[in-house]
Design a protein around this nucleic acid. Structure first.
Lengths: 237, 237
DNA sequence: CAGCCGCCTTGATCCAGATCAAGGTTTCGC
DNA sequence: GCGAAACCTTGATCTGGATCAAGGCGGCTG
């Protein structure tokens, strides 16, 4: 059933040439011909912080920025159930039974392409399916870790775990020893929704970490981890 | 690269003939020849409640019984992060970074086969990968629902959600109107570990549902849902 | 640059659920 | 059938984090 195509040598498409996601996520599993075909159907775009990213039948590489995923209860309570930090990708087959909303937390750069193309390529490139599976399993492991935190950790353990998670994802080069500093992509309200706490408790725990010398709060959105080791001791796992 | 084999007509293997999982899970995605090959490497076995099911490089169809998956914190706190109810399957590629322990909650019947066979078959039967992906995404959706419950629901909402989840999975034929009754596969301690509560709180909430006429506690392990509608109102989502 | 609005911090008080405590019930070995 | 252990229920009290309350601090508009 597979049609022979792109038998001639194919070069890397211009749009992909210097792309951060070229070898990661889904694109890394593609053959050169497939990459060219996908590139033709891809569009790079920027979105502002706060933009909702509805499921429009595409996959998107997150080239820069951060996305939050939320589940809402009918009375307005909200749980953040996950994040996508660059470089990662967004989108999935098989609609979730309960709706999950995706929203840009920061200004972002995305590269989107229709799922149908990937679905078709999967038939003769099983590596693509493998990547999707690996990605889903990673998200599952993360979600289960946070179940553990939400169910059994104290407020201060949750906040410590959260800061380490953000640091790990924002700063991939993870200078292990020294101090790590980063811009928080979330408001206090978002942190509270993620950790199952109130904004007051989040604020108090951050203040406590500051007065204990574990972190420095440069400003509301910029945190510096003065002692990663101490933070890890407070993570509680 | 695919080797031609099993070109002659192949009948359903004896072991699979009357198997509950024949058309579900992974087996349902197999061609007849593949099913025969897999059957040759499969073994059906029974395990007792309490048996640990270590990751031994196999997939297992759960033909009867229930498995719990747990994550432990180093100080002994424990979170149950998921369940597998028959008919479902157990096992995954790509080891989780943090260890997750699987344990039989009841006497169970399993049918196990090596992952390597499935991995190889996946190369020319993309449907297998699709099933694995769909399965992983279903587990992810479940995990995120429980993140929401753990982070934002009250004790009574958690217990109501829990009972409905058990009922849905134990009694697939889900008589929608009448009363549903089932054996709880978990102790109060397990329920508490799952919901992020203590056994005392679980016990109190169950007693309250009983005195409100929403459930009947036939005995410690057997519950009858007298009013599914009222339970759903108390679920909180 | 004044005034306002959104976001954050800090303090005081409250309460849902934890912890502590005391039986009750079921199960099982002997 | 008896004793003991494991598990569960119910009550009394305590407490971590929620809620209520009162500013503080930028950042934007006019």
């Amino acid at each position: 059933m597979a049609v022979i195509q792109d038998a001639q040598p194919v070069s890397i498409p211009a749009i992909c040439e210097s792309c951060e996601a070229r070898h990661g996520g889904l694109c890394g599993a593609l053959k050169a011909g497939q990459l060219a075909e996908l590139a033709r159907a891809s569009s790079r775009h920027e979105v502002l912080a706060g933009t909702e990213l509805p499921d429009d039948g595409t996959y998107s590489n997150v080239l820069s920025g951060v996305v939050k995923l939320t589940r809402n209860l009918s009375d307005g309570r909200q749980q953040i159930v996950g994040f996508h930090f660059a470089p990662d990708f967004l989108g999935r087959p098989f609609e979730a039974k309960r709706p999950i909303k995706a929203e840009a937390l920061t200004k972002m750069t995305l590269c989107s392409f229709p799922r149908t193309i990937i679905d078709r390529m999967m038939d003769d490139t099983p590596q693509i399916g493998q990547r999707l599976l690996q990605h889903a399993l990673n998200e599952l492991d993360e979600a289960r870790d946070w179940m553990t935190a939400l169910g059994h950790k104290t407020a201060s353990e949750k906040v410590a775990s959260f800061l380490l998670m953000i640091a790990r994802n924002i700063d991939p080069a993870n200078h292990p020893a020294g101090s790590i500093s980063f811009d928080l992509p979330l408001s206090r309200a978002d942190i509270a929704d993620f950790l199952g706490l109130t904004i007051e408790t989040v604020s108090r725990e951050l203040s406590r970490l500051r007065s204990d010398g574990v972190i420095r709060i440069v400003n509301k959105r910029h945190i510096s981890l003065e002692s990663v080791a101490q933070l890890e001791e407070r993570r509680g796992d």
